[in-house]
Structure formats: C-alpha cells, structure tokens
C-alpha cells in the first residue's frame, strides 16, 4: 500500500511541463477560433478541449497511475454521456 502511494508522487517538473502544455493548448485553441473553418471550428475546439481534459485527468488527477477500475468506469461514464447525446439526435436531427 505504502509503496503504491509513493508511486503516485509526481515530480514538480512533470506537473510544470503539463501546465505549460495546457497553457500552450489554450493559446492554440484561442488562435484556432479566429480562423474561419466553417462547421469544423467547433470540432477543432472540442478536440483541443478533450486533449486538455485528458492531460488534467491523466496527470493532475493521477488517473494514469490508478487501477483499471477507475479507468474503465470513467470511460463508461463519458461514453454513456456521449451515447445519450447521440441518441437524442435521432430525434432533433430528423425532425
């Protein structure tokens, strides 16, 4: 148990580089929003947001170092949400 907890310890250096990446991605997404790509804009923005979210999850929230249980259940939750949004579109997209 104790050893496992030690393994969670992420060095300040790693955390700092994650923060730098997150800030860089923020700059990129703001820049990308200024370019007119039509319908693609929102998808680019969502893609960058998902990348940022994954970084926060993996490193700040330690998900990378957690057991399979948390990884799977988290994925299931996000998938459930995605499926629910998707199924709703069977209605709204065809009305």
């Amino acid at each position: 148990m104790n050893q496992k907890q030690q393994a969670h310890g992420i060095s300040y250096g790693t955390l700092l580089s994650v923060l730098t990446t997150l800030l860089a991605l923020t700059a990129i997404t703001v820049y990308a929003s200024q370019i007119d790509m039509g319908a693609l804009n929102i998808w680019v923005a969502l893609l960058i947001a998902s990348t940022k979210a994954s970084l926060v999850l993996m490193f700040f929230m330690h998900l990378r170092y957690e057991s399979g249980l948390l990884k799977y259940t988290f994925t299931i939750t996000v998938f459930t949400l995605a499926i629910i949004i998707g199924l709703t579109f069977w209605d709204v997209a065809f009305r």
Partner: peptide
Amino acid sequence: VDLIWIFIFPLFYLIL
C-alpha cells in the same frame, strides 16, 4: 471543476 470549465470555455467564448 477545472475540467468542466475546459469545455465551457470553447463552447461559449470561442464559437466566433
């Protein structure tokens, strides 16, 4: 809370 903001930010401020 941060994670949710990461999605709120582009969905409201960056759809230009």
